[in-house]
Amino acid sequence: MTTRPEPEIDERNREYWAALEEGVLKYQRCLGCGNAWLPIRSECPRCLEANWTMVPSSGRGRLISWVVYHTSYHPYFEDKLPYAVAVVQLEEGPRLIASLVDEPSELRIDQRMVLSVQRDDGRARAAFAVDRDYAR
């Protein structure tokens, strides 16, 4: 079996990936200017200071866009085709690449989504499902 591509975990992003293992999606918040962002970086991209903390997200957000892979670019994903990848914006502001739980035919842009962490081959990753509690 081919091993899945793994993130490069270091001092900066260890807490992010450890939180996902616990079912929590964290993002960075600047203690100086209040900016919130992902992916993990050393300095705030707004005020450029390195004075930040990690905050758990509510897990609610909206669907910016998504694609469905019919081509595999890595052996691990060959038997996963077709699979979807999305851009989701958290209600706190940060955007991220994530997996999707629902069939793509049910999706539309700006739809309300909710975090549903998925775990496979020893790795937790952010996935989102359509937020069915949200009356649209």
Partner: peptide, 29 residues
Amino acid sequence: QRGWGDDAVYGWFGTPAGYAMIAQRHMQQ
């Protein structure tokens, strides 16, 4: 065809997918 950093975990690879992400939003919008 390379993976986009740590997002390779999600299968986020290659140049076509980035353009597909934009195309999907344009189609829906």
